[in-house]
Amino acid sequence: MQKSDFRGILPAITTKMTADQQVDLAAVRADVAFQIDGGVDGIIACGSLGEASTLSAAEKLSIAKAAIEEAAGRVPVILTIAEDSTAAGAALAAEAEKIGVEGLMVLPAMRYLADDREVITHYRTVAAASGLPIIVYNNPIAYGIDISVEMLREMADEPKFVAVKESTGDTRRINETLNALGDRYQLLTGVDDLALESLILGCVGWIAGLVVAFPRETVTIYKLVQQGRIPEALEIYRWFLPLLHLDIGPKFVQKIKLAEHIARGTSPVVRQPRLELVGEEEKAVRAIVEAGLKARPDLSRYGL
């Protein structure tokens, strides 16, 4: 992947925690190695799935640095900017560039539901703080702010805005954006259980969640779509769908960390106020993951 090119599979990795909810940097490095071995095209650190809301800026930078050291130039490391204030976001962006981060995924400022003018000003201010390319993260379902096609048109004069993580949950937005803006932005799907549809409609990458537990399956789906082998991609995708549905709702972090734990043996610990799943919630996730593992497709059939 070239700088400013965010095609392919980009896992939004979870932040591995010790039993006392401290960041486990050794486990972060092991996770990055696991993803790269699975064939991914980049690493996104400290996103929503990475529990960004409970990490300090210093922790985020330490996670990014560990990921960069492990990646060793094999794939780019992208840091998420999801801060409460524009000033904090800009400061983190500047520090990220200093340690070797190769791109940023930027959200609107948290907590406050800004209007369009405020959102655009936030993005421009963060962009001015570094020379790094930026993925604009649009997730109105989770964060209450919709970065519309018209807003993207207004932002198009800033060359650092190179891609959009499209997480509206409405695949019509993909065609609307492409019709209005052509290839000005790389569109990346951010909704796991709409990923295949989104890739067929024109998204060039998948910022994925369940990839953290199943990288090879995720990568194979993407490669098959790129080769136009849609029926074969559908075979894997339909197996994957019950697992991909875990990437939805307020407890998606707990669900995906538990899926990782079952599939890979990694730590399911989350940072409070989140708590690990118990009771029927845990049983339901375990049943989905165990059924998926039992029916896991033989990827050698696809010759990739």
Rank of each mutant, 00 (worst) to 15 (best):
Y185K: 10
A195V: 14
V136G: 03
E176G: 10
V126N: 00
L79V: 02
R172Y: 12
S53M: 15
E176I: 10
K165L: 07
L104K: 03
D20P: 06
A45H: 12
C46Q: 10
Y185S: 11
E83V: 14
V212N: 14
D37F: 08
V126Q: 02
M110Y: 11
A128E: 03
E154F: 09
F6Q: 02
Y302L: 00
L234C: 07
K255T: 01
I256S: 00
T18K: 09
D183G: 12
I78R: 04
H261N: 09
G228W: 14
M17G: 04
A127L: 00
L277D: 07
A142M: 05
L224S: 01
D115I: 09
A263L: 08
L299Y: 00
R286Q: 14
R264T: 06
L55H: 09
M1N: 09
L196C: 01
L25M: 07
E118R: 07
V278I: 13
E166M: 11
L293T: 06
V211C: 09
Q226V: 03
A284G: 11
N179K: 13
V204E: 08
G202D: 05
D31G: 13
P273G: 05
A287I: 12
V204F: 11
A27W: 04
A12S: 12
A12M: 06
P133L: 08
A88S: 04
P297D: 01
M151A: 08
G190I: 08
A26N: 15
G265R: 14
A87P: 13
V40F: 04
K223V: 07
I78M: 07
P133T: 08
I174D: 13
G265E: 12
K283C: 13
A142K: 05
Q21S: 07
D24H: 09
S300L: 01
L246C: 15
D192W: 08
A213L: 09
V75T: 05
A142F: 03
A71N: 03
Q254F: 01
I13M: 05
Q227Y: 04
P215E: 03
A109F: 11
I63Y: 03
Y302T: 02
V270T: 02
V164L: 13
Y137C: 07
L132I: 02
D157T: 10
E83P: 15
V225R: 02
